[in-house]
Nucleic acid binder design. Structure first.
Length: 667
RNA sequence: UCCCCGGUAGUGUAAUGGUAACACAACGGCCUUUGGAGCCGUACUUCAUGGUUCGAGUCCAUGCCGGGGAGCCA
């Protein structure tokens, strides 16, 4: 179900390939080392796909390891969720490459004895010492990027004394923070992490794996490289922020005189998708503030959220492949992910008919008691999925959106007097409407069907523009359907200010839909396409007789892409709404009321596009006389191309989508 | 301010000194019993300046811009 090539290529795989060719290793051993202090998210998925993908492609192994050196922040709940998420993501793909210990993950805490001995060794070699400074003193004495550090008073204390103190630290003689073990490296290094970094601290805390055994715990830099070494990791792949730690990673391993080969660390840029957040802290805020229902809320980018939403693991993997692996700090358009999901689901989803916002249709010339079973294909992309029977009768439901009493231009669907096709059924023509006498809303539509068009065929060859989905009212099965939308209204919710201000109030809408009867037997594993609506999967809340579906993702909908639709759904940011009016006016004004591409722009600082009437836009309106185009900083004015105008609009902080909408709206 | 790492269409990613390309997004068309899918097409690219070279996105220098780095977090 996946198009990922057997041998993807990126700078890390290139290195591995070269290392293998040079005979440095027989096969690569990677690892995925999360700290169990939160749920895994789409960013971790990128790392999982990278590490397990490498193991898979080069015949190696990827160890799953809990990086659990900080007992005060970690919990078994997280350990369990991490295991489940990793298994789900690699199932059927790299599940034979996972490195485990007796079926369980590796734990950094499993190495605490060895780590302790390594620290003793370092002290014995005069390369580490016990330091008695307070946290505040250590902090100050470390210096700053532009201020040299000063050595600890205890830097040169006798080795025997450090050894004794370290043993007593372990024995629990000292309170938290009283002493630390520090590597003796270089207090004047421009790299702060080499200024005698701490490698052990006292923490009288119970650990989720080791219980009360320890009251001293190693720090990340010490534990990680050595855990890699102990497990025989060849390529230790982490994210960019650890780049400055690499000299320390190497220093520890090299100064312990370990047999070679040593593991090496490589760094790549983490994934930052638009319209969501992946910061652990902010994810916790969303959960704790009950903005979402839990860690597996289908609106969240957590792996458990994606799973619950119905996104296939293969789509996540394809996404990880598509975005590549580099050292460039990038922001990935969430549309790339959505494309992968649709592509995957399009191939596998069973087509079904379901109406989310029902409008009753009475087919006047269809016999009252008659029911016909009509054949419908399960998946036009996959003939082996077969067909099914769908009941048709006199009263059916169609989507409210599929009927307009007064149709807008280019509206092909049902309206008084028009004919449309009911998918797999008949062509019907609207003959009348019934309105609520008080509200004036259309409550019922009357129609006639053409018996010659059974199955939706037109023996006379006549064309009908629209094909609508429908459900027989008497046979319909009710379902709760949860319609999800982006959790945030702006591409980069936490770029500036409080990300909570950018939460999309319409991220969840729940409706009661009418489903074709076969959906009563829907299974949690199956993926469904409700035709013309989107892809849906059963939610974990679903029970027999009480169906609950999640909309995984909508179908691409060109009709819905109009600017008013965008505004209605909250896709247009407040900023865009505010600026749209002024921009449209000013662009028209600058072009003598014509097309915006006829306005004048000039180049500012040789780089940025600027509009001849910037000043007036900044002042929020179009009042007054335009500045004569000749008086602008002596810069040459020119007629921008469409794309340059789009870029110009975007320079106000709007997305391309918004800019296009504004541009289009002005035509 | 110091150290490290980056900078290729709107967004990502390729091109490993030899014709700048692919995907997504956008736009247009064809086709369609899903306004889906599919097919065809259009527009838009190497941060800047110098240097090396027959030839530079690639190598060098300088500058500019962006990210990371001063937890007893990972």
């Amino acid at each position: 179900m996946s198009d990922i090539p057997e041998q993807p290529s990126d700078f890390i795989r290139d290195i591995i390939q070269a290392d293998l060719a040079a005979g440095k290793h027989q096969t690569p051993v990677t690892r995925f080392p999360p700290e169990p202090n939160g749920y895994l998210h789409i960013g971790h998925a990128k790392s999982i796909c990278l590490n397990f993908g490498i193991a898979r492609e080069f015949g190696g192994v990827c160890n799953l390891r809990m990086d659990d050196t900080n007992p005060t922040k970690e919990e078994v709940e997280y350990v369990d969720s991490i295991i489940a998420d990793v298994r789900w993501l690699i199932d059927g793909w790299a599940d034979d490459r996972i490195g485990l210990e007796n079926g369980q993950p590796f734990y950094a805490s499993g190495y605490f004895d060895q780590l302790y001995e390594f620290a003793v060794q370092l002290i014995k070699k005069g390369k580490a010492y016990v330091c008695d400074h307070t946290p505040e003193e250590v902090d100050f004495m470390r210096g700053a990027p532009d201020r040299a550090g000063e050595p600890s008073k205890y830097r040169d204390r006798p080795i025997a004394e450090s050894l004794d103190l370290f043993a007593r630290m372990k024995a629990g003689e000292f309170p938290d923070g009283a002493r630390t073990v520090r590597a003796k490296i270089d207090m004047s290094s421009p790299n702060i992490w080499l200024r005698d970094p701490l490698i052990y601290r006292i923490r009288h805390a119970s650990h989720h794996q080791t219980g009360a055994k320890w009251c001293i715990y190693p720090l990340y830099d010490f534990a990680h490289c050595l855990s890699d070494y102990i497990e025989g990791i060849t390529h230790s792949i982490c994210t960019l922020e650890f780049e400055v730690h690499r000299p320390l990673y190497d220093w520890i391993l090299e100064n312990l005189d370990l047999p070679r080969p040593l593991p090496h660390q490589y760094e790549f840029a983490k994934l930052i998708p638009t319209y969501t957040i992946v910061s652990k802290r902010k994810l916790i805020t969303l959960v704790n503030d009950q903005i979402v229902t839990g860690w597996d809320d289908p609106r969240l980018p957590t792996i458990s959220g994606l799973r619950r939403r119905g996104i296939p693991a293969s789509a996540v993997r394809q996404f990880a492949y598509n975005i590549g692996v580099t050292k460039y700090n990038s922001v990935t358009d969430i549309a790339v992910f959505e494309h992968c999901i649709r592509e995957d689901l399009n191939r596998r989803a069973l087509r079904r008919l379901a109406v989310l916002r029902p409008l009753k249709i009475v087919i006047e010339n269809y016999p009252e008691s008659q029911v016909e079973m009509l054949e419908a294909v399960n998946n036009p992309e996959d003939a082996s999925a077969g067909t099914r029977q769908v009941p048709f009768s006199r009263v059916i439901y169609i989507e409210q959106d599929d009927f307009r009493e007064v149709p807008p231009p280019k509206y092909y669907r049902l309206s008084p007097g028009t004919e449309v096709r009911l998918r797999y059924a008949y062509l019907i023509t609207c003959t009348g409407i019934v309105k609520d006498p008080h509200t004036g809303a259309v409550t019922e539509v009357h129609a006639t069907y053409d018996p010659a068009t059974r199955g939706g065929n037109t023996p006379d060859g006549r064309k009908v523009k629209a094909t609508l989905h429908w459900v027989s009212a008497a046979h319909a099965v009710d379902a709760e359907v949860r319609l999800y939308d982006k959790l945030f209204t702006v591409p980069e919710p936490d770029a500036t200010g409080d990300f909570r201000a950018n939460i999309n109030p319409h991220s969840l809408e729940t409706v009661t839909g009418k489903c074709e009867p076969s959906l009563a037997d829907a299974t949690p594993e199956a993926r469904y396409q409700f035709e013309r609506l989107g892809y849906f999967a059963l939610d974990t809340d679903s029970r027999p007789g009480k169906l609950v579906f999640n909309r995984t993702i909508s179908l691409k909908d060109t009709w819905a892409k109009m600017i008013d639709e965008m505004a209605k759904r909250g896709y247009l940011s407040e900023k865009a709404k505010y600026l749209a009016g002024a921009l449209i006016e000013i662009l028209k004004h600058g072009s003598g009321g014509k097309h915006p591409s006829q306005c004048w722009l000039y180049q500012k600082n040789g780089k940025k596009w600027a509009h001849a009437y910037d000043q007036q836009i900044a002042e929020g309106g179009v009042g007054g006389e335009p500045i004569p185009p000749t008086s602008l900083d002596g810069e040459k004015l020119f007629r921008p191309k469409k794309n340059e105008t789009i870029q110009y609009i975007m320079s106000f902080g709007l997305s391309q989508q918004e800019a296009e909408a504004i541009f289009t709206a002005n035509i």
